[in-house]
Design a protein around this nucleic acid. Structure first.
Length: 292
DNA sequence: GCCCAGGGAATCG
DNA sequence: CGATTCCATGGG
């Protein structure tokens, strides 16, 4: 892969395993808007960024070479060889098919605070409504960026009472967000020191927050804390795992976790993303599933 | 009107 | 303990 800048546009050429639609639509991130086929606007790191892809060429704008090196290169996880990851996890025909179906997925390196709050909001909720709640929260408390609003910083959102949050129509999750803000502000949960913790220790820390259980914690750890070995198991993953790996039999989450750990080890998080996109776009395991 | 959504807390037996 | 119930809201 190479990159060059021209008038605040950075062009990436010969990018491997990069499909902007798959990256954004695989459920890891909520702050994006589809403008056209392979043309998106995202808001991350307090910036608006447009992304337009044509084949293996990707244009990022407005974006200087410095922005790219400092922010977006890591955000899109461009140091990692996803071809190698696909080889490692493709140990059976099921995963081979899932990886072939969505070989342009990459796991973004998002900011822990934003990701944690976003997945608290995600619980027992659907993706379009999650995006709406986060958009309203950003518009009400975040910095105006001209073409959108940044996700509110902790100091900004902390001005909101539980009632204020409830008014954003996040329902019962308002109490959870308020509890999370309290614990982050008073450092009962300290996101600045997460790099010093093992994944088990980090999980224990995150579980202190009301509204954070294993699944929400796993998403935050996988999508923003570099813990690529966790296997977030939501209703879609449970359903597709039962359907594709457990012969259609009802299987509890602990069993699914140990199965994934055994099978994919440190790459389990990647396997989870390929399966999630595969399952959700093809509706595998639901009564809407299309025949092959 | 009913069901479900990238679940988790509270309660009950 | 495990199993059930409730939680707000909006799209299908």
């Amino acid at each position: 892969m190479t990159y060059r800048e021209n008038d605040k546009t950075v062009i990436l050429e010969n990018v491997k395993n990069f499909n902007i639609e798959q990256i954004l639509e695989c459920g890891q991130c909520f702050r994006f808007e589809k403008l056209n086929s392979m043309h998106y606007r995202i808001i991350a790191s307090g910036r608006v960024l447009y992304i337009k892809q044509e084949g293996s060429a990707v244009a990022l704008y407005p974006c200087t070479a410095e922005d790219y090196k400092k922010i977006w290169h890591n955000y899109f996880d461009l140091d990692r060889d996803y071809g190698k990851i696909i080889d490692r996890i493709s140990t059976d025909d099921i995963m081979k098919a899932a990886c072939k179906y969505a070989d342009g997925i990459r796991i973004l390196n998002q900011q822990p605070y934003e990701c944690l709050l976003s997945f608290i909001i995600s619980q027992n909720n659907n993706i379009p409504r999650i995006k709406g709640i986060i958009a309203r929260m950003s518009e009400a408390y975040g910095t105006n960026l001209g073409e959108g609003y940044a996700f509110p910083e902790l100091e900004q959102l902390n001005a909101a009472t539980e009632e204020d949050l409830f008014a954003l129509r996040m329902g019962f999750r308002a109490r959870y967000i308020r509890d999370c803000l309290d614990k982050l502000v008073n450092k009962e949960v300290d996101l600045a020191s997460i790099d010093e913790l093992t994944t088990d220790e980090l999980l224990k820390e995150l579980l202190k927050i009301k509204g954070v259980g294993q699944k929400v914690a796993d998403c935050a750890m996988l999508f923003s804390m570099g813990r690529r070995e966790v296997f977030p198991t939501d209703v879609w993953i449970k359903r597709v795992m039962e359907h594709l790996y457990f012969n259609g039999n009802e299987t509890d989450i602990k069993t699914i976790h140990s199965f994934a750990k055994e099978k994919w080890g440190e790459y389990a998080g990647y396997a989870q993303q390929y399966l999630f996109y595969y399952a959700r776009t093809l509706k595998i395991g639901t009564d809407k599933e299309k025949a092959k």
